[in-house]
């Protein structure tokens, strides 16, 4: 079994665009994070750091533990072992303060079937940042759903749902954006939209973590990342190094 480890060894992120972020606190510091379900370790001793304002890539095959790790980072699941700190602080019991800075695009998207696109944005928006109706239209325009604002979500294709979920996520103005398989069910234009949204979040100073099978696509955006295999980190390094690692391991 290939057990190559590409260590970052204190190197600067691959893209110079995020160099200023290195001086700030890390957005995420994970130390020996593990998660066990029964006898199965879904994530085992994951240790990594994500610089503030950077884009971090998590790759791995199905069942590698990417989604579990993202849910732990999102504070939705508690790690069995290990600890996480966010923006320099380690919440032990009360995750509320950090949780509200996190936005997650989960594979099931979290949309209500019976609401329209505009109502979905308003509902999630009102519960967080209370966006104006102009902002709702701006966000729907951003994801190309302005013509469908009065259409119920149940009539949307999977790709349109993902676009709407991205708009809902943008309405929350998160400091830490977690995208779980953002390219799934999207056409090429939709994939480009995800890329643009990630760049937009980064311009706004947010940190983005992408878990995806689309290694090369994700690597175009990412500064660095990790590769998971059966819950263990088998490689960490710059996006280019991860791409080479994935090419050698998975093809």
């Amino acid at each position: 079994m290939l057990e190559e480890k590409i260590t970052v060894a204190g190197s600067a992120p691959a893209r110079s665009a995020v160099a200023p972020a290195a001086a700030r606190e890390d957005a995420i510091t994970a130390r020996d994070v593990s998660k066990r379900y029964g006898a199965h370790w879904a994530v085992s001793r994951a240790t990594f750091r994500v610089a503030q304002g950077s884009c971090f890539l998590i790759i791995g095959q199905n069942g590698a533990g990417k989604s579990t790790l993202l849910r732990i980072v999102a504070t939705l699941n508690r790690p069995t072992l290990g600890e996480l700190s966010y923006f320099g602080e380690a919440p032990r019991h009360d995750h509320a303060a950090v949780r509200h800075r996190i936005g997650l695009l989960s594979p099931r998207l979290g949309l209500y079937e019976d609401l329209t696109a505009a109502e979905s944005l308003l509902t999630f928006g009102r519960l967080s940042t209370r966006p104006s109706s102009d902002r709702i239209h701006e966000l729907l325009g951003l994801v190309g759903l302005n013509p469908s604002l009065a259409t119920p979500v149940r009539l949307f294709s999977q790709g349109m749902r993902k676009r709407l979920a991205l708009a809902c996520l943008a309405a929350q103005d998160p400091d830490l954006v977690l995208l779980d398989e953002p390219y799934g069910a999207l056409d090429p234009a939709g994939m480009t939209l995800v890329d643009n949204m990630v760049r937009r979040w980064q311009r706004q100073g947010a940190t983005v973590v992408i878990a995806t099978h689309h290694v090369e696509r994700g690597a175009e955006l990412a500064d660095d990342g990790i590769s998971l295999d059966r819950g263990r980190i088998v490689a960490k390094g710059s996006a280019e190094e991860l791409t080479r690692f994935a090419a050698a391991r998975f093809h």
């Binding site: 989960s106 998207l109 209500y112």
Partner: peptide, 18 residues
């Protein structure tokens, strides 16, 4: 069931809603 089936409960838990 509506909250869980759509995973909207996850989104709600991440929003600043107590």
């Amino acid at each position: 069931r509506i909250e869980v089936e759509s995973d909207a409960l996850t989104v709600l838990r991440l929003l600043p809603v107590s």
